[in-house]
Simulated assay, not measured.
Amino acid sequence: MPRRLSVTVETFELAQAFTIARGSKREARVVVAHLEDGAHHGLGECVPYARYGESAEGVVAAIETVRASVENGLSRKELRIAMRPGAARNALDCALWDLEAKTAGRSVASMIGENVLRPIDTAYTISLGSPEEMAAATKAAADRSLLKVKVGGGEGDIERIRAVRSQSGGARLILDANEGWTEDTIRPNMLAAAEAGAVLVEQPLPSDRDGILAHIPHPVPICADESLHVSNDLAGLIDRYDYVNIKLDKTGGLTEALSLMQAAREAGFGVMVGCMVSSSLAMAPAVLLAQGADLVDLDGPLLMKTDRPHGLLYEGSTVAPPSPLLWG
């Protein structure tokens, strides 16, 4: 039976401003692909990211270029060839997984060999701000076991790191600079991270200026985010990074993300599974991927005022596997 594809752009208001080194926002704008075959439907959500030259309008336009092929039965394997990695392919890839699972009467988890899904611990994000603001936000979240702390705001990161540590209640800390450090600041900031007992520093330098990471000590493991999109990127990260952050909006879907995770393990990298700020629909396939991760950062819905119906269930720092009513 022929498929029918529809695409919508949706906006979710955030509970408060979300600020990183590149700027601040108060809403999450997502694109949702909806595939139907008459009896079943599949959904996939993506987040267009300006850092990678994406917009909601551009993602919708990219999806439209493959509409006919998708409606005529394009497979996930063929989709990886037909579209470049990124948000548009992610929405379609996840919709195809969801549709395939529902058509087959089984779960996506069983299709990828994860027959028993477990709840997982996720980080909770502390937005970039003044040391005092970040200390207060950390104190309010000190009951959580893992905090992802946004830094990279120019001067003052050492003070921010110390302020957060003072209020963290023993939580593990991931410091995420979003490419905001420089060759001049990385050494003192890394020492401050080590002093604070951080477990990871994420993407400290711009992706096109990270060569220095191969020549300086790593007193705290360093994780690639903006420097990593797909499996072919891994070879260039060896000796620079210790971990990689896999996000479906970068890989272009769960299909490539599964391949990337396996390749990263074979290359000796630790693995984090992360997300953009988005609803539970975007988190659901990432929760499946995160079953095999060392660290997980899937708190997108916690940053929103409201989530989707049948959204993921969060209890403290723990997120439960998705309901079939949501995805998969």
Rank of each mutant, 00 (worst) to 15 (best):
R3I: 03
F12Q: 07
A15I: 10
T19K: 12
S24I: 09
K25N: 12
E27G: 04
A33I: 01
L35G: 04
G38I: 02
G42W: 02
G42F: 06
L43P: 08
G44F: 01
E45M: 01
C46N: 05
Y49M: 10
R51V: 12
Y52G: 00
A56E: 15
E64G: 02
E64A: 15
T65N: 00
V66Y: 05
A68M: 06
E71H: 01
L74V: 03
S75L: 06
E78L: 08
E78F: 01
I81R: 10
A82N: 07
M83T: 05
P85Y: 07
R89F: 02
N90P: 09
A91R: 00
C94T: 11
L96V: 09
L96H: 03
W97I: 00
A101I: 10
A104D: 09
V108T: 14
G113L: 12
I126R: 10
I126E: 14
S130G: 14
P131I: 05
M134N: 03
A140S: 15
A141L: 15
A142L: 11
D143I: 10
S145M: 04
S145K: 14
L146S: 05
L146E: 12
V151Y: 08
G154Y: 00
G156Q: 05
G156W: 07
R160Y: 02
I161V: 03
R162P: 00
R165F: 11
G170Q: 00
A171S: 15
R172H: 12
L173V: 10
I174E: 01
D176V: 04
D176S: 09
A177V: 05
E179Y: 12
E179N: 07
W181K: 06
W181D: 08
T182I: 14
D184N: 06
P188K: 06
L191F: 09
A194H: 15
A196H: 05
G197V: 04
V199F: 05
P206F: 15
S207K: 15
G211C: 11
I212D: 06
A214V: 08
P217T: 12
P217K: 01
P219M: 01
P221I: 15
A224Q: 04
A224N: 02
H229V: 07
N232P: 00
D233W: 15
D233Y: 14
L234S: 07
I238S: 15
R240E: 11
N245S: 09
I246L: 06
K247S: 00
K247P: 08
K247L: 02
D249H: 13
D249M: 15
G252D: 01
G252P: 13
G253H: 03
L258H: 07
S259D: 15
Q262C: 08
Q262Y: 10
A263L: 07
F269Y: 12
V271Y: 12
V271W: 14
G274M: 09
V277K: 10
S279I: 10
S279D: 04
M283T: 06
A286N: 08
A286V: 04
L289D: 07
L289H: 06
Q291D: 12
D299H: 04
D299P: 01
D299I: 05
L302M: 14
D307C: 01
P309V: 13
H310M: 08
L312K: 00
E315W: 03
V319N: 05
A320H: 12
P321V: 13
W327P: 01
G328R: 10
G328S: 14
